[in-house]
Design a protein around this nucleic acid. Structure first.
Lengths: 191, 191
DNA sequence: AATAAATTAGACCATTTAGTCTAATTTAAG
DNA sequence: CTTAAATTAGACTAAATGGTCTAATTTATT
């Protein structure tokens, strides 16, 4: 027997899906209300405004999702570079990532230039992921230890960039073809 | 003495600037009208709709801008890889690219998933740039000639991706740090 | 100068937008 | 069971939105 999902959760889930595809300005409150089948009064009881809802989506949906995905847990004595490569490859198995790109990056591009609250919140998540990669790199004894910071930025930039090129034409294979070069480069840094 | 700019051009110029920063859905017709100081009747005399204006911006402003920038002209006996690297480095000198990322990529992320006309038009420009890079790579006698297509995709993805990470925090130096690794990799492919 | 065509001008309109308000209902607590 | 608090319900509002319409004006042509 399924216990019914709390209103707040229904709102956040629907908003995440809609904003992921249509963006912030392309998603209206009516679209959200219709999708989650919650009346207006309830929504504005739980949230202050549209911006408040979407910021909650960033904090309570996108952020955990990203942290889950970029868990980057070290497995036994696997080389750290391989842990990173495995995550990069895992991206190709997520259909929505291939089709629409990274939800954080999408919202970032739309909102960061025009709203500092979104910019701050999104940047926090991005820095956290970048830092996880950086720490892994530092533990892996690369040839050039000083490059770990720029290298982690390069990795995230390349993955998200490869995903962002013309969503409708995107395919798993195109992503893998492009990312192949990143993997070759990363392997060349080992030891 | 300056001859006054035609109405149509004023509309396209203002729309480009606004959509670059605020996106399609974040830019209203009133914002455009106000910025270019053209009355509504004139705008709708020259264009059918908002979408018609922005599609014209893609074709008549963004497309030439991109083709100019990615001219990728071979200079004397410079190695083709260096021609590509020079263009990648030139990106860092354009303040608006550093601050807001690639205008084509921005619009692409917002519109491609929800409008096939934008998707088609933007993809045309993207493929053209990718192909220019591919041809250069093919002329350069790389070790692995078969990889020119995926490599050109990798290059564009990495450049645009590196530009897209948190616009407000972006700086020339961060871009250069990240792109440094792409350049190292490209140089390793020479000969 | 007379006429036709191109363009400008902006008041106006229907719809959609985010958000408010009050009443009804459900849930929790004693 | 009674009462208070939490939540739902949705009609309503003011502003913004994209777009239309007709009249006035400018420009080109004869």
């Amino acid at each position: 027997m399924k216990t019914k999902k709390p209103t707040r959760d229904k709102i956040l889930d629907a908003t995440f899906k809609l904003v992921y595809v249509h963006g912030y300005n392309g998603t209206s409150m009516d679209m959200i209300l219709k999708m989650c089948a919650v009346p207006k009064g309830s929504l504005y009881y739980h949230f202050l405004s549209k911006k408040d809802v979407v910021l909650a989506v960033v904090k309570e949906r996108i952020s955990p999702r990203m942290n889950d995905f970029y868990e980057l847990k070290q497995i036994s004595d696997e080389h750290e570079i391989n842990t990173i490569i495995n995550t990069i490859l895992k991206v190709s198995q997520k259909q929505d990532l291939i089709k629409y790109g990274c939800p954080l990056n999408r919202l970032n591009q739309e909102m960061s230039p025009v709203d500092e609250d979104f910019d701050r919140e999104i940047n926090l998540i991005y820095l956290n992921i970048k830092n996880k990669i950086k720490v892994l790199l530092e533990n892996s004894n690369l040839q050039n230890q000083k490059e770990c910071d720029s290298l982690s930025e390069f990795i995230v930039g390349t993955v998200w960039g490869s995903l962002s090129l013309s969503p409708n034409q995107s395919s798993k294979q195109r992503y893998l073809d492009s990312i192949k070069h990143l993997i070759i480069y990363l392997k060349s840094l080992k030891k």
